[in-house]
Simulated assay, not measured.
Amino acid sequence: MRLDDFDPSDNVRDLGSSSGPGGGFGGGGGGNILLGLLPLLLGRKMGCGTLAILAIGAVLFFSMGGGGGLIAPQSGVQAPAGTGTGGGATGAAACNTPERRFSCQVLASTEQTWERIFAESGQRYPAPTLNFYQGGATSGCGFASSAVGPYYCPADQGVFLDTSFFDELANRFGAAGDFAQAYVIAHEVGHHIQTVTGTSERVRREQSRVGEREGNQLSVRMELQADCYAGVWANRNKQYLEAGDIEEGLRAAEAIGDDTLQRQAQGRVVPDSFTHGSSAQRQKWLRIGLDSGNPAACDTFSQPI
């Protein structure tokens, strides 16, 4: 994907590195996010790689206040002892590695794309902030180690990214390529769209009224819509795509499907526990966005998924 035409976004912060405990949740200090959903899905202790892949977008649900009890943050959490900052750079100065610079250019392209889409209906697009970190980060949604992978926190209206995740995506799960990386970021920006349009809050309220199975289904629809929004962004930036880019994105969508992850981790698939959608569903909705370029086509809540 060629994004050299884009200057890095100014809506970027470097949060630095954390020396707090890593690898999973609930260990170490009392500020860790509680992800009881993950053992439920996979039925076993997981390594950081599995956690990272599974958490693409999933962590959005702790940012929604743990709707339906799917992912429950502790209120008022603090970073574990020893967590540092060491960052402080903002804007282009925070885009100080090739991986970060590309991520900053992806964010800039999402800003231009969604600004135009919002303007079509007479609205202003409030861009999110991209927060780089290493090891762990404290946000308005609590402390999370890099094991959770990229995530979005609406309390900060920010995407949080440790770019080491891209190595995991490529080397452990076979989803290499710059467009696969861009898809990850565009998916998290899709959760930002859901927040500013009120979809996240509506789903959170509905999840609080239904049982676990129904709440999981709502979670799946949220994640698939974010996939579709990522496809809309890619459609509106066709001129920057290169041969093989779409295939890279579809491979990434396949790699993070609930059925694929469950089969790899425990040898069996439990559809009622899905919270993100199957590989086929994630590919389908990414493709719908890619083909249509229309956010209205991403209504996963009123259509069969």
Rank of each mutant, 00 (worst) to 15 (best):
S279G: 14
G257D: 00
T90E: 09
E247I: 06
G65R: 03
L51W: 03
G27C: 11
A176L: 05
R209M: 13
Q283T: 10
I117L: 13
N237W: 00
F62Y: 11
V148W: 02
F61V: 11
T97E: 04
G267L: 04
Y133M: 14
C95Q: 00
I53R: 07
A180S: 12
W233H: 15
D167L: 04
P304C: 09
D272A: 10
G30K: 12
P150I: 02
Q105T: 04
G47F: 02
I305S: 07
F165G: 03
V210A: 12
G31L: 06
Q281W: 02
S200L: 13
S219P: 13
A79V: 07
S103K: 11
G49I: 01
E247A: 12
R116K: 14
T163R: 00
S146D: 05
Q225W: 03
D4T: 14
V189M: 07
G76I: 01
A226N: 06
L224R: 06
F25G: 12
V196P: 13
G22K: 04
R44V: 05
R209T: 13
P128K: 09
C48D: 09
G257S: 08
N216Y: 08
G86A: 14
E188M: 03
A155F: 08
S109K: 05
F166W: 04
S17E: 10
I53Y: 08
R202D: 07
T110R: 02
D272V: 07
E242F: 13
A226C: 10
Y152H: 02
G267T: 03
P98Q: 02
I71G: 04
C298S: 14
G82Q: 06
I185V: 07
S121R: 14
D299K: 15
V159Q: 11
G20A: 09
N11C: 06
D272E: 15
T300H: 08
L34F: 12
A144P: 00
G136Q: 03
A93L: 04
F143Y: 13
H187M: 05
Q78W: 10
G43K: 14
S109C: 08
L35T: 10
H276W: 00
Y240K: 09
L51C: 00
H276G: 09
R101V: 06
I193E: 11
G24M: 06
I71W: 04
S200P: 06
R2Y: 07
S121F: 07
T163L: 03
G82S: 12
A137H: 04
D4C: 15
A176G: 00
